[in-house]
């Protein structure tokens, strides 16, 4: 049965992704070219007004969708590629290997994600590929931990024991029996990782360590708007709302898959 949460979440994601993909067609203005009306109020020409360099805020938000989704999905893929194999191996083999895996996961989970991301980005230098890698790297332990927990449970199941009794090799058992039973939790965590990565990259951009200007990026837009918050609140609120809306979509999807 498909829950209404899932449908709502999917609806949001489709809307956002559509806006991002179609941005070049539907955006009324060039998101990067500076204009001649600075800090303009909303008009029929500029629906959300213009920023301090005269760029159309609405168009920048549309293009910002691309930046956010690229980073969000990219980071989730990185986290999955690192976290799932580690979780599978740790949970299935148990023993010393698992001990190492658990220690490693605990080590990373103990560090606050934003702080770790901040340090790594400062070291590597801010750019979209670096942000994607860093955020994926920060999120893999959570993925690994969930997968490991699931594997610990499944490996004791009767059908796994049966497969082992039939003389199946470990790699075959993991591939045929264990992995398919973790897909659900991996998908849920994937969606949640996307929302975390979008949120954290916005935070990093707000701190000045995110996407380099002039690329349209929600976090940077919130930051630039902050300087004019009392004068043109929309400059910050609009991209902030876009972040919130997107995160909500992915979170709804993730949490309803998990149930």
């Amino acid at each position: 049965m498909v829950s209404s949460r899932l449908l709502l979440g999917l609806g949001i994601i489709v809307t956002i992704a559509g806006a991002g993909i179609l941005a070049p067609l539907i955006a009324p203005h060039d998101p990067i070219r500076t204009g001649s009306v600075f800090l303009g109020l909303p008009t029929s020409e500029n629906w959300l007004g213009t920023d301090d360099l005269g760029r159309d805020i609405f168009s920048r938000i549309l293009y910002g969708t691309q930046t956010s989704l690229v980073i969000g999905f990219g980071a989730a893929i990185v986290a999955t590629l690192i976290g799932v194999p580690i979780g599978l191996v740790g949970g299935y083999l148990r023993g010393k290997t698992d001990l190492v895996v658990v220690q490693m996961i605990d080590l990373f989970v103990a560090l606050p994600g934003l702080v770790l991301a901040l340090i790594l980005t400062a070291m590597l230098g801010p750019s979209i590929p670096n942000l994607t890698l860093v955020l994926g790297f920060v999120m893999w332990p959570t993925m690994a931990r969930l997968v490991r927990g699931q594997v610990l449970q499944i490996r004791e199941a009767v059908f796994v024991e049966a497969a082992r009794a039939l003389g199946g090799r470990d790699s075959w058992i993991v591939y045929e029996h264990i992995w398919p039973n973790t897909i659900r939790i991996v998908s849920a965590q994937f969606a949640i990782t996307v929302s975390f990565a979008i949120f954290t990259s916005a935070s990093l951009s707000f701190l000045g360590l995110g996407v380099p200007p002039p690329t349209p990026d929600w976090g940077s837009m919130v930051r630039e708007g902050f300087q004019f918050l009392a004068l043109r609140p929309l400059m910050s609120i609009a991209p902030g709302a876009a972040v919130t809306f997107t995160i909500l979509g992915f979170y709804l999807v993730g949490s309803s898959i998990e149930r």
Partner: peptide, 16 residues
């Protein structure tokens, strides 16, 4: 490009 607002604005214009 440091974080200072004026320098950031200048840089975006100069880049263009």
């Amino acid at each position: 490009t440091p974080e200072n607002q004026v320098l950031r604005q200048l840089n975006q214009l100069v880049q263009e």
